[in-house]
């Protein structure tokens, strides 16, 4: 057996693969939001990690101040944070339309630093605890590992979010408008479609996805101002590997990178933080547009 050859019992391997899939689901939702934003707005959204963190904090605040539970937060937090994102787009990012990508990157990076700085000042770096929802505490013994219900739910919820996004963008009229808007905004406007509104909505949706991932993460890690910055660089690597702006690419690559990272954690834990960047370097050399990207 291959697993015996590598010196690890199959149980350990299966467990790690499953965990990799769970982490990959996070990467998928986050990189999907980035891909949507890049595809439609041509903005490299470095504020994505901070907005993911805002989603988790929104869930915490809804529970702490208003007594609202996890299930409410799962819908309310993305709407709130998505709304905040739309304001950012309308009043800041829109001014950068038509200029080089670099400006959008710098602006969103600055925004991320400001948002994180404010939250560190307000809440401290150690963050706040957020309990696992009652219905999802405990877990099931799969034989090769103990799977907490909550982690299982994360995969299901993430795949649903990815599926819904794919459906909206590929199968609905609004999705068709959005795609047309990327190709030729002027022509679309001439048909009487409000393109600026569409762009704002698209950014809001991408941000909402980040916030959704933030709520999913809240019971797993501390709700901390730094939770986004630890993750965002990896997610960017995922988007680059998948191909900037490719929805399918973001989802498939997110899951695949989760698996590769999971395996690395068994065979060479010290390298688990860098393996994705190694893959990124290889992909950039062999296929500069990314695995699923279309060369211009």
């Amino acid at each position: 057996m291959l697993t015996d050859l590598l010196g690890f019992p199959p149980q350990v391997l299966f467990g790690q693969l499953l965990l990799g899939l769970i982490n990959g689901a996070f990467y998928a939702v986050l990189s999907l939001g980035l891909a949507v934003i890049f595809g439609l707005l041509n903005i490299v959204n470095f504020a994505h990690g901070a907005l993911y963190m805002l989603g988790a904090f929104a869930a915490w605040a809804l529970a702490h101040f208003l007594g609202l539970n996890y299930w409410v937060a799962l819908f309310a937090a993305p709407v709130l944070v998505g709304g905040f994102g739309m304001l950012l787009e309308r009043f800041l990012l829109r001014r950068l339309a038509g200029v080089d990508h670099l400006y959008g990157l710098l602006l969103t990076f600055g925004l991320a630093l400001v948002i994180e700085g404010v939250f560190i000042k307000l809440f401290g770096a150690s963050g706040q605890p957020y309990p696992t929802p009652k219905a999802l505490t405990g877990g099931i013994n799969l034989g090769f590992m103990f799977l907490p219900w909550y982690r299982g739910w994360v995969v299901v919820a993430s795949l649903i979010a990815c599926g819904v996004t794919w459906y909206i963008f590929e199968m609905t009229k609004i999705g068709a408008y959005l795609r047309a808007g990327t190709e030729n905004p002027k022509l679309l406007q001439a048909f009487g479609v409000n393109v600026p509104l569409l762009t704002t909505l698209a950014y809001g949706y991408g941000v909402g996805l980040a916030a959704f991932a933030g709520v999913l993460a809240a019971p797993i890690t501390q709700v901390s101002p730094l939770m986004g910055s630890n993750l965002i660089i990896v997610v960017f690597a995922v988007v680059v590997i998948g191909g900037m702006g490719s929805i399918m690419g973001a989802v498939v690559t997110g899951l695949a990178m989760g698996l590769i990272e999971g395996l690395t954690k068994v065979f060479w834990p010290e390298a688990s933080a860098t393996v994705i960047f190694f893959v990124m370097a290889v992909v950039l050399v062999l296929r500069p547009a990314g695995l699923f990207g279309r060369t211009a």
């Binding site: 019992p9 149980q11 350990v12 467990g15 790690q16 965990l19 990799g20 769970i22 982490n23 590992m145 103990f146 982690r151 797993i220 890690t221 730094l226 939770m227 630890n230 993750l231 999971g262 954690k265 068994v266 834990p269 010290e270 688990s272 933080a273």
Partner: peptide, 20 residues
Amino acid sequence: SIRHPFPASDFSSFVLQAQA
């Protein structure tokens, strides 16, 4: 022992190995 990156965001994999 397992050497994890600093800082690490997800510990599930390391916990599982410790369990095993």
